[in-house]
Design a protein around this nucleic acid. Structure first.
Length: 567
RNA sequence: UGGGGCGUAGCCAAGCCGGCAAGGCAACGGGUUUUGGUCCCGUCAUUCGGAGGUUCGAAUCCUUCCGCCCCAGCCA
């Protein structure tokens, strides 16, 4: 029955390191406080999930999996103005794609509206909540400041019966938005501002995506969340640091609502920041709205959908989330960390393929004009289970333009005039002539091959320093390759500087190479399938085609390249 | 100048019931290699925000100072 059995880790995915949450759970379980744990991932369906959510998803579902507990997916849908079912569906797709399963039930805070109303009535009856008939402005003015206490509302001591009646009439729609609210009666002088008679219910005459027009009053987060947790028997309610102050109210509500079924424990951890990346919904929305990117699933976006389209494997994102750990320290993780996890996974799992992003023609002068040979190459150097593929070889080839240098330094191991290199899996070739156009640019190379080196080894034992990937000009297919760089030039665009958002955008974040060539077999690749184009990095097949009908490949991440670093 | 939190390497992060500072990313050096990839090996904190104190012994306990983050929505 526990859905967690489906929440698996991929082989090679690291075990979660110890953290303070696990320490607390260990202690609670040792004390026998719970038979097992129940966690929850509670998104508001008002936007797309991003890498920051992935951390929370992996934490909550991962904990449930590791402790043989369960994790609920619950939509915190208490604000009908901002929420849409469309987002809820996208969120479910993303969580599933990440590899997690929440079982039969999708929970919704809106399912508890009736019970929540009852809890509010209990509070009013106990004299712990009242209907305040003041304007929002008035309430704000009375809240005080960080250093000055607030002032009591004139309605604070309204008799419970009167509040009960008013609250019922609020529900019945007798008041307009903003005319009155239900407030908790706590302490207007509390140094914790959250406890200065917080609003529990407000009037919103807006249809809710699930409950329609049934309600015109909606409970606030602080009232809803703790009670929803209690209703679901959540043991550990894990949220981010900015809710630390809210915990006082979380506990107050649970301590004071007589029929709250249990009292879950709220724990807070630091939200994920990644340099050169924004994870604020507001800013991501700007990127989309102002057409800095093509949409929420643009491969440069840190959204789950964007990373997925970019070619990041779900297992890599999960591995990243567990490896960065969980703490209460505000931190900013290096992008390179995520990319390293992606490389790790892709290195193990991505089939290798030849591609030339920027083709340079090579003619093998001593290779017969009409001859074609087929070479059987392994799809993966260490995984025979991934099989082989056939690559055709002929007299006219393409190599990568930057695999040739006319005036090559000694440390350059690739092709240069007079130098011999290996065409991977095929032959040794030696460059004999460089052909240029009138402008002096290199347009073609003339080479000779050594028939004795078929397969890539010389019988006389001579060695070459360089091995190039190559493609038969006649057999390769044309493709469009898109290279992505970081979207922001600023290391920390989430900083609160009052600078124009546009200033941070990297104008070179997308480079399109329309003349690339790839192995013919790649024409059939499925969307999202990743390949390692040897030496060029990892590329995923995009679901769309280019305007000219060519297949599109997105660069997922680059390979480490020590030659490039030397330069 | 109220309240709530947090400071361990360039970046994450264990350790925090006191007993020789884990691990990963990055970096650097070496080896293997039909990908300048992978893999392997090695180097990388005499010190834990600073200063005092307790102790035979402190990242861990105490005092104090400094720095950073969050809170004044009828958002979550």
């Amino acid at each position: 029955m526990s859905s967690d059995s489906k929440n698996t880790t991929a082989p090679g995915e690291s075990a979660a390191p110890k953290n303070f949450i696990r320490t607390i759970i260990d202690r609670d379980l040792a004390k026998g406080r719970h038979p097992s744990i129940v966690t929850r991932f509670p998104p508001e369906p008002n936007g797309f999930l991003h890498i920051g959510h992935a951390k929370s998803i992996c934490l909550n579902f991962g904990l449930a999996r590791d402790y043989d507990g369960v994790c609920h997916l619950r939509f915190d849908d208490t604000n009908p103005e901002k929420e849409e079912d469309f987002y809820a569906r996208a969120i479910q797709d993303d969580v599933r794609w990440l590899g997690f399963d929440w079982g039969e039930t999708v929970y919704h805070a809106s399912d508890y509206f009736e019970q929540l109303y009852g809890f509010a009535v209990e509070l009013i009856e106990k004299g712990l909540a009242y209907v305040d008939s003041q304007s929002p402005d008035k309430i704000r003015a009375q809240r005080g400041t960080l250093t000055e206490p607030g002032q009591n509302s004139p309605y604070r001591d309204r008799p419970a019966q009167e509040s009960l009646d008013l609250f019922a009439r609020m529900r019945a729609g007798e008041f307009e938005e903003g005319q009155c609210v239900l407030r908790a009666r706590i302490d207007m002088a509390s140094p914790q501002i959250i406890l200065r008679d917080p609003v529990l219910y407000r009037i919103r005459k807006v249809a809710h995506q699930r409950t329609g027009d049934t309600w015109c009053i909606y409970p606030m987060y602080d009232f809803t969340h703790c009670l929803s947790d209690a209703l679901e028997g959540i043991t550990h309610s894990i949220c981010t640091l900015e809710f630390q102050d809210n915990r006082a109210l979380y506990d107050w509500v649970l301590d004071n609502v007589p029929s709250a079924p249990c009292h879950p424990q709220q724990l807070e951890f630091a939200r994920l920041n990644i340099n050169y990346t924004v994870t604020s919904k507001r800013k991501l929305l700007q990127l989309v709205d102002k057409n800095f990117v093509s949409g929420w699933d643009d491969p440069r976006m840190p959204t789950i959908q964007g990373m997925r389209r970019r070619g990041f494997p779900a297992a890599a994102i999960r591995d990243f989330c567990t490896q960065i750990g969980v703490s209460k320290k505000d931190s900013c993780v290096d992008m390179g960390f995520l990319e390293s996890c992606v490389r790790d996974d892709l290195n193990d799992n991505a089939p290798r393929a030849f591609a030339v992003l920027d083709p340079l023609k090579v003619v093998i002068e001593n290779y017969p004009e009409e001859q074609v040979e087929e070479f059987e190459l392994a799809n993966h150097p260490k995984r025979p289970d991934m099989g082989t593929r056939t690559v055709s070889f002929s007299r006219e080839l393409y190599i990568e333009r930057n695999d040739f240098l006319e005036d090559a330094p000694k440390k350059f191991f690739r092709l240069a005039p007079g130098r011999e290199v290996r065409l991977r899996g095929a032959y040794f070739v030696t460059c004999t002539e460089v052909i240029k156009d009138d402008a002096g640019s290199i347009v073609e190379l003339r080479c000779t091959y050594d028939p004795q080196t078929r397969g890539g080894d010389a019988p006389d034992g001579r060695k070459v320093k360089g091995t190039l990937h190559w493609l038969s000009a006649r057999h390769a297919i044309e493709a469009e390759v898109r290279l992505y760089d970081r979207l922001f030039t600023e290391e920390n665009p989430t900083g609160d500087k009052e600078r124009d958002f546009k200033e941070f955008i990297n104008p070179n974040s997308l480079t399109i190479l329309p003349d690339a060539r790839v192995e013919a077999g790649l024409a059939e690749a499925e969307a999202e399938q990743c390949f390692q184009f040897e030496r060029q990095g990892y590329f995923s097949r995009d679901r769309e085609q280019s305007e000219t009908g060519k297949p599109v490949f997105n660069r997922t991440v680059t390979l480490r390249d020590s030659w490039a670093k030397k330069k």
